[in-house]
């Protein structure tokens, strides 16, 4: 009951935030100093194309009217036509976004689970060698340069050792074979996903592990841990049933926060692995001056981040009954 109220309230907040983002993007794109036409119009574009763009953007209209049109177009799901692909932007994003969500959610879930369970163990063995080694490794992982690690993985796992595809999301040969069933295809995607997943996860695991470790150390000094000990519970049970869930709360919060910051890393990963996701599309759109696609990519990425934050909030409320009120 109260959970539903929480979701409702957070959804309303998200709507407000999204409206602010929507407006912010509009003003960023339109109000920056200088002539918007020259900024948005690719100079190599032919005059006809440029003119088309100007009228498509309604740049000949007053600002407030443009803003209203922009809102109206957004509400009707009309994001315009991508300059580059010559197709509705929604279509392009509709193809790319699911791939990004697949890669991202899997990576976030995996790295959070791994970070939580390993951080928990490491905190338990605080001061021992395993703690020192893992903590330092995590710090290193956290500061790794992402494209470098991505290329390293490709080189080692896909090239030198082999067994993994170099890039992409599917094996074209396999998918064009009518004999392949859905299961084989799903395995194929999984197979392709592993290296990008590993790249994204290794960056995040370190972060989550460190948070979990310090949070766990704090939790272990709580009174209810003493209670659990006095009850005669085994160390393992105390760790997993009592300390773990409480200590993982800050990690959950952090997952929500770090999501927005991991977009750039995600875009780089997608580029290196040629993962057909929205991050790669965003980089591509920005570097190709594909203004409608770039704007819509920003918007959809913020929608995903906001929704993910809502999920994180709900998860938090589920994990911690105290904030349900």
């Amino acid at each position: 009951m109260t959970l539903r109220r929480l979701i409702l309230r957070r959804s309303l907040e998200i709507l407000v935030i999204f409206f602010l983002i929507l407006s912010g993007l509009f003003f960023l794109f339109h109000l920056a100093p200088g002539d918007p036409v020259s900024r948005m119009v690719d100079p190599s574009m032919s005059p006809e194309d440029a003119e088309l763009l100007v009228s498509q953007l309604g740049l000949d209209q007053p600002l407030w009217l443009r803003y209203l049109y922009y809102l109206k177009n957004f509400c009707t799901g009309d994001f315009g036509i991508s300059f580059h692909y010559g197709r509705p932007v929604v279509e392009v994003i509709g193809e790319r976004l699911p791939n990004t969500i697949l890669l991202f959610t899997t990576s976030i879930i995996l790295s959070a689970l791994a970070g939580i369970s390993w951080g928990k163990l490491v905190a338990w063995y605080k001061g021992k060698r395993v703690d020192t080694v893992v903590t330092i490794t995590s710090l290193v992982c956290h500061t790794l340069f992402l494209p470098w690690i991505a290329l390293l993985f490709i080189w080692v796992f896909a090239y030198k050792i082999g067994g993994f595809p170099l890039n992409g999301m599917i094996s074209p040969e396999l998918w064009s074979d009518p004999a392949s069933g859905w299961f084989v295809k799903a395995l194929d995607i999984l197979h392709h996903m592993l290296l990008p997943l590993l790249t994204l996860s290794i960056i995040h695991v370190g972060e989550y592990l460190l948070i979990m470790r310090s949070s766990m150390l704090e939790t272990l000094s709580e009174d209810y841990i003493l209670t659990a000990r006095a009850k005669g519970l085994s160390e393992k049970r105390i760790r997993n049933r009592h300390a773990g869930p409480n200590a993982s709360l800050p990690v959950v919060t952090n997952v929500g926060l770090s999501l927005a910051f991991s977009i750039n890393g995600g875009a780089l990963t997608e580029t290196v692995f040629t993962w057909p996701g929205i991050g790669r599309e965003l980089i591509f759109a920005v570097s190709n001056n594909d203004y409608p696609l770039a704007l819509a990519s920003f918007l959809f990425i913020s929608i995903v981040v906001l929704v993910a934050n809502l999920v994180v909030d709900v998860l938090y409320a589920y994990l911690d009954p105290r904030i349900r009120y």
Partner: peptide, 29 residues
């Protein structure tokens, strides 16, 4: 020792506020 704890010797804690795990139902504990 674990089999002695609680079964033979149990405890009532000081600061009962914090003696309960906040994210589990009291009955479960």
């Amino acid at each position: 020792m674990r089999t002695i704890r609680w079964k033979k010797i149990s405890m009532i804690f000081q600061a009962a506020m914090n003696a309960w795990n906040p994210v589990q139902r009291v009955g479960e504990q």
